[in-house]
């Protein structure tokens, strides 16, 4: 045979070398690129971080503002950070649902059979979703400012709050990623995710101060990582202060990652 062989002799003789860190990073970046292209192509998957903040921010502010804080403008410093927490959490749900949808397509089989890092197909979309959390929090702030919110923390405070929201989104997404991996299909993942998302959102200080809640609910609401993050966002955006609450928010995020990331990675590896 004239063309001898297509085989690189190194490939045949090389060991079962695991994928190195540099390759893992590069493969994750490539798959994050793929996820952003998908976002651009199917804009309907972006509704939860574009249309939803636009509508919810105005709606919640005008519906609850008078009842809870007397008037809309004094409610805004409370509700805008709360809505950022809520919107980012909604975006996390989509992270899990889309992972499931992705894993059910033929292209995932190809990822499995490629000699690539086993974690890259999970990590790539998760990093790309940082963009979604960014859009969600910036839009919520923008709508708030448009209807009269004046964040006392200034640009830096708001920028810090956005960064924290992105980090929180990435951390909380591990919960929904786990559902995405374990779920049978996208509908099932959506169902269980909403079941978890609603208590996490409403049993928090997102919309109302927790003081009026019954003791057991308040106990949960006060340690709910979503509450911790929202309190920290309020401190950063409204006061421009890096308070202990910011530290607690980071601890909350770390705790969620510590519990759910290993579970998610383990079940993902079992499916890869």
């Amino acid at each position: 045979m004239s063309s001898v062989t297509m085989t690189d002799p190194d490939v045949l003789s090389g060991g079962d070398t695991r994928v190195g860190l540099a390759d893992t990073v590069s493969q994750t970046a490539t798959l994050a690129w793929r996820a952003t292209v998908k976002m651009r192509r199917s804009l309907e998957v972006m509704f939860d971080v574009t249309i939803q903040p636009l509508i919810f921010t105005a709606m919640f502010a005008y519906i609850f503002g008078g009842a809870i804080s007397g008037d809309v403008s004094s409610y805004l410093p409370l509700i805008i950070p709360g809505l950022i927490g809520q919107t980012v959490l909604t975006a996390c749900v989509a992270t899990g649902v889309q992972l499931r949808t992705d894993m059910d397509t033929g292209v995932f089989d190809r990822f499995k059979v490629l000699p690539i890092s086993r974690i890259a197909p999970l990590a790539g979309p998760m990093f790309a979703d940082l963009l979604r959390y960014f859009i969600a929090s910036v839009l919520t702030f923008s709508v708030g400012i448009a209807i009269g919110y004046r964040p006392g923390g200034g640009f830096l405070g708001v920028a810090g709050a956005v960064l924290l929201a992105m980090l929180a989104g990435w951390s909380l997404a591990w919960i929904f990623t786990l559902f995405g991996i374990l779920g049978r299909n996208a509908q099932g993942v959506q169902g269980i995710s909403l079941l978890v998302m609603f208590p996490l959102t409403f049993l928090s200080n997102a919309f109302v101060p927790t003081q009026t809640m019954p003791a057991p609910l308040r106990a949960f609401a006060d340690v709910n990582p979503v509450s911790l993050v929202i309190t920290a966002i309020r401190d950063l955006a409204n006061d421009g202060a890096v308070t202990a609450n910011v530290g607690w928010a980071l601890v909350g995020c770390a705790a969620v990652i510590a519990i759910f990331a290993p579970l998610a990675v383990r079940s993902f590896n079992r499916k890869m």
Binding site: V11, D16, R18, R34, V37, K38, G106, F108, D109, P115
Partner: peptide, 20 residues
């Protein structure tokens, strides 16, 4: 991993990314 480096697999159902 070594096996995957030696293989090209084309499935029964086209496994390319529909969105790209």
């Amino acid at each position: 991993h070594a096996v995957r480096r030696l293989l090209g697999v084309t499935g029964q159902y086209a496994s390319v990314d529909e969105n790209l």
